[in-house]
Design a protein around this nucleic acid. Structure first.
Lengths: 244, 244
DNA sequence: AAACTTAGCGTAAAAAATACGCTAAGTAGA
DNA sequence: TCTACTTAGCGTATTTTTTACGCTAAGTTT
């Protein structure tokens, strides 16, 4: 990696779904030698980095993701930019940023991405394991800088995208049950769905293919596993309407 | 306005609709003294500016818009970021940028906005009038830098947004006919709609209110004028579904 | 007055969304 | 092995929305 550009960064809101809850992957920011952790409340941050000066923005984001999750072909979407002149307010945090980057920092415009990760397939970098954790969305504490705003904004962007694109599968294992799929949509969109009608809706979709396998290790009737066939989806995709 | 930040700019894709065509507002970039215009093909550019170092990003974009259209309460949406390390390739253009900004330029990350303007109410700044023109989307020539890519990307973002939000009205006069509305959606979404079914769809919407006025100056039966009632829309907005 | 264009109303059929009843297949605990 | 319990999974009837298409009315232009 080349020289860092101290004016522009990328931050990633990494979403994961454990079957019941939507979670987000957060980093601890290291304490500075002279900091007293007991009086600091915002020690968690979004994974991110200043960009390298010769690097595509998306590649910067992928780099951050790869370091953290060990995955490299994961869903990534640039959804907003945060560049308020005074978004770096907390002087402790600015000091931390200055020291860890080794550069003098004035204003940093950050390009925000959200990413969807199959939580069970992700394999956090061992060395970072202790400093990284999946936090349920409704338990996210106060974060560094404006990172709470970025998380909320990412969630809205995700919801919006889910209304028009089938990206939910990025959060599920390759083989999933209809129950998992339904839970996912219920949690993210925030409304209950009728079991039976949901099912009927799925059966009509040719790009959701039932496998000849069943769920294992559950304490009730095991459900059929399905997979998402992206090719079929793209081929059959019908023009959705529009709102007036 | 304060000191400029030579690393970050805003660019605006300003859309307008004349009743039949979707157009975009473009600027001429001035010739440098030693340039031969006859050998240059890309002399048009998107309106934009390096940001001021103390300015919110959105405010920078509004500033550009205000200067160009004389309007200040217009629809503006940040939709993408373009920051490829080599997006400023053409050396003539870089030289132009260097001279007009008075700064040394290396890599510029641009925050892209699109804006929707009521074309008949806009009132371009007199001094800029000669250097600004509305170009139909399918006649946009080769532009400076990566601005063609930005225009195409803006159009896609606009289409996507129109599927879920009633933003088309931003492009129409306050009082409009159903024919105008239908033309607008046909042009942007790229498909013909049935006259009669379109009409029925509208009548059901309480936020599209018929006025007691009719169209004037047309060579056929004048149509009823309608207006968009945003308050009613927000109040009655129903949860739209989602794609799986 | 005739030709023409767009506005505007209506009806029937097809498709999609909703509401709800019920059985089947498995697990866990007694 | 029996019973209780949980979730899977199929079906049907009703309502709502979308689609397709026929037709008349009200203006303008020649």
């Amino acid at each position: 990696m080349n020289r860092l550009n101290p004016h522009i960064s990328v931050d990633c809101v990494i979403f994961g779904f454990d079957g019941l809850q939507l979670k987000v992957l957060l980093n601890e920011r290291e304490l500075l030698p002279d900091e007293d952790s007991s009086i600091l409340s915002d020690l968690l941050k979004l994974p991110g980095s200043l960009i390298s000066d010769t690097e595509e923005l998306d590649i910067s984001a992928y780099r951050v993701l790869k370091e953290l999750t060990g995955l490299d072909k994961i869903f990534l979407k640039q959804f907003a930019v945060f560049g308020s002149p005074n978004r770096l307010q907390n002087t402790n945090d600015v000091e931390w940023l200055r020291k860890t980057s080794g550069m003098s920092i004035e204003r940093v415009v950050t390009i925000a991405y959200y990413s969807l990760v199959k939580i069970n397939e992700s394999n956090p970098n061992e060395s970072l394991l202790e400093k990284t954790s999946w936090i349920p969305l409704n338990e996210v504490p106060q974060l560094i800088f404006d990172h709470n705003i970025i998380v909320n904004s990412a969630l809205e962007a995700l919801r919006k995208e889910m209304r028009t694109d089938p990206i939910g599968f990025e959060l599920l294992p390759k083989k999933f049950t209809l129950r998992q799929l339904q839970n996912l949509y219920e949690v993210i969109m925030g409304n209950k769905l009728d079991n039976r009608n949901f099912r009927k809706r799925i059966v009509k979709l040719n790009y959701l293919v039932p496998l000849s396998e069943k769920e294992k290790g559950v304490s009730h009737k095991p459900a059929q596993l399905y997979k998402f066939d992206k090719k079929t989806f793209l081929r059959e995709r019908k023009d959705i309407g529009f709102v007036i």
